[in-house]
Structure formats: C-alpha cells, structure tokens
Design a protein around this nucleic acid. Structure first.
Lengths: 225, 225
DNA sequence: CTATGATTCAAACATTCGTTTGAAACCATC
DNA sequence: GATGGTTTCAAACGAATGTTTGAATCATAG
C-alpha cells in the first residue's frame, strides 16, 4: 500500500498533461487516469491542484536556476574579478536552459516547453510563483550584464534581456507554434543546431546598435562579444 | 429589444477577460456579467464559446494581416522589382503590430497582448485557427525575406523569424511577465521607445553572423540592413 | 497479535460550466 | 390589429470540476 511511486507518477503525468493541455483544461481526473492512481491521492499527497502545479515546477526550476548560478560562479571565478564578456553571460543563462530542453528522455524538453508557455500564463498565482522562483537568478544575471556592458543604459539591457527570453520561449516551443505550421517547410532543428541558432540571434540582438532614443545622447561602438 | 450593441458588448468584454484570465478560466457568465447581457445571448449571437473566441480575433487579426500585406505591397511597388532591405520587411511586419499595440484606447494594445499570449496557447483548435489566419501573410513575408537575404539559408531565416516573433510577444506583454516583476526596476516604455528598442534588437538578431552549423559551409559577410 | 499511523479507495458533495429550452417581449411589415 | 421574425429572458439540463469523507487496506513497531 505504501507506494513511493504514487507521488512521482502523479507529478510526471501532470507535467506532461499540463504541457499538452494547459493548467485549466487539465483535470485531476485526467492526471490520475494517466498515472493510474486514485483521485483522492492528489489531495492526500499535494493538498490541492494549485499545490500540485507548484510542485511540478519546483525541483526542475530550482535545479535550472541553481545550475545557472553555478555556471555564472565558475565564469566569475575564472575571470578573477574582471568583467565577463556578454556572450559568456548569455550562454550561462540561456545555454543551461537549452541544455535542459535537449534532454528528451529525462523530461527536460517537455518541462522547458511547459515553462516557456507558462511565462505567458494569465493566472496571477502562477505568475507570482514563478516571479518568486526567478528573483535571485535574474538579479544576479542582470548585475553581471550591467558590468559586462558598461556603456549600455540599464533599461536597454533589461529590455533586451526580456526580448531574449521571448525568443528563447518560442525557440523551445518550436514546432508547436502556429507560425511554424503556417510556414510549412521548417525542418525540426536538433538541439545543438537550435542552441547555435538561438545564441547567434541573441548575441546579435544584445550587441545591436542602440536605438535612436539613446544614440543621440551617447555614441556607442561595438565591443568584443 | 433589438439592440445592435449586445453583440459588440459581448465581444469587447470577452476580449478583455480572455486577456486577463485566459480562455478556459473565463466563463461565459463572467463575460455576460461584464457585458450586462443575458447568458443565452452568447449562444444566440455566436453559437458557442469556441465561435466567440474565433470572433474575438477575426476582425482585428484580419485587419492586422491585411495592413501588413498592404505595407509590403507599398514597399515592393516603390522598389520597382528590386529586393527590399531586410529592415524594411521587418518594419512592415513587426512595426504594424507594434503600432496596433500602441493603441490603448481603441483596444489594440489589449488585443496584441492577447494575441502574443495566444500563440503559446495549448488548445489545438485555437492553434489551428491562428495558423489558418496567418498562412497567407507568413508566406508573403518569408518570400520577401528570402529575396532580401539571398546569402542566408532559408531555414536560418525561418528560425530567426520565429525567434523574432517570440521577442515581439514578450515586448508586447511587457510588465505582465514574471521576469519583469522579478527584475523590479524596469521602467514602462512608451510605445515609440519600445518600437525603437525592439526593432534594433530584431535587426541585430536577424543580421547576426550565421551560427557554426552553417559558417563552415559558406562564409558570409555583413550587408547593409 | 495488536495498535497506530500512513495510504488508498469509492462515493458523495457543492459548485460551476456550456448549452438548450420554451416563453415573453420586441420589432417590422402588411 | 394581426402576423411572423428577431431578440432576450429565466430556468433547466447534463456534464464536469476540485475537494471532502469515512471506510478499508497496508506497513511498522512493540
């Protein structure tokens, strides 16, 4: 009767079904059906549907953000007090996520698709939860970017970081997007190729000339990426 | 009794509520309450909730895509058979959307937020609907980009277009995103500044050096954007 | 073996949902 | 005024939802 698997089977089923159907359209009966457990097990093990949703994110998201911070620590340690290059920072943040997204069998790919989708989720409770989870890592990375790009206004860096997140979310969603279907002939990209493609795009965008709202105030020149 | 407003009041209320809560979490009773109409009016005027969802998108999305095509036509007419510059094409596609997003009072801003969110919506019926609506405009723009960037592999262009869409979606969502909340100190950007910021980022990404998966095959050089 | 706590179970509960129904009210035309 | 079509209304319908409940089952320790 004491089945250590019940809890993890619910989590796995929920993760897949949330990705496929969204939170609202995935019922607990769908999840328990897929996990082959009893409906009451959800409330026994998790307390509520909301708590289950948060649990689905917790461990992977914690690992993702901790890994990002570890990567940044390694880079900063190796740099011995010098500022990092923007490319390094971008690779630490986005590269770790893309590596996770490349892990099909372990569920990382599905999770990153769910995460990318969830960042535009209307539900305030989910947005607040994610915001809380991301606060420390975002703060660290923005500080590192400010140091790496001293000539770029902070607002510009923040907005570009935000655009980069959108690009990554769509990259991860990939063939799910209606545009891809409409475009028709886009081949599936293998994880390494997708990473290379996205990184190139992100660095290009990050190091693009400043828009007119700033260029008049402070001429800028390109630096090594 | 014959109230030409009932239908449009339902549409307006639905548009706002779908943006705020998502499709599944917005009930018809919420919509009819906000619109001050009877619950059965939805089925009388629209037939079903799904049909209402599609109606919410139809007229604005048709206008958006037609305006994009008109802009592209104008550019091509002025170019007299020469290929357009990539920047022109990007401005025709994304600029029109951002102009719509700048229209707070007329509801364009809310609509673009809804649209950006909807592109990652799990529901297959919504994705199929949007894909169908976008097919012609996407096809035209990809053809124009291929002509503008003859040295760039087509797959690269398509993926970069996709990344750009993600960046735009997040740009429009703006302060809704958990990352922005976590970042804390990002100031609201006025529409013109946001457009300039995003365009700079998009062109930078589009014209970024090709990733390693291609660079070995075909050396590339920068062209005028 | 018994007692206790943990876990699972089926059923029930209260609520909510999109859709339907038949009547009432309204409008336009003759 | 009568007629037919349109629109709105309140209530009902059947289904689905997350949560709760009390009993049964299981596992462990004494």
């Amino acid at each position: 009767m004491s089945d250590p698997d019940t809890r993890s089977r619910i989590l796995s089923a929920a993760e897949l079904l949330f990705t496929e159907h969204g939170f609202e359209a995935t019922s607990l009966r769908m999840i328990t059906g897929a996990a082959k457990v009893n409906l009451a097990a959800v409330n026994y093990h998790f307390g509520s549907k909301e708590a289950l949703i948060q649990e689905v994110f917790k461990s992977r998201l914690t690992w993702l953000n901790e890994e990002r911070l570890r990567e940044l620590d390694r880079l900063e340690h190796a740099a011995k007090g010098e500022a990092l290059k923007p490319r390094q920072i971008v690779e630490a943040f986005f590269g770790v996520a893309l590596k996770m997204a490349a892990d099909v069998k372990g569920g990382g790919r599905n999770f990153m698709r769910l995460l990318g989708r969830t960042y535009t989720e209307p539900s305030a409770f989910i947005r607040n939860f994610l915001g809380g989870e991301d606060a420390a890592v975002i703060s660290r990375f923005k500080t590192a970017l400010f140091a790496a790009l001293p000539d770029v206004p902070r607002a510009e860096i923040l907005w570009r970081f935000h655009f980069m997140l959108g690009a990554m979310a769509y990259a991860i969603s990939g063939a799910d997007a209606p545009h891809i279907v409409a475009a028709g002939d886009l081949e599936e990209s293998d994880p390494e190729a997708l990473t290379a493609r996205l990184m190139s795009f992100l660095i290009g965008g990050l190091r693009a000339p400043l828009p007119e709202i700033h260029a008049a105030k402070k001429p800028r020149e390109r630096k090594a990426a």
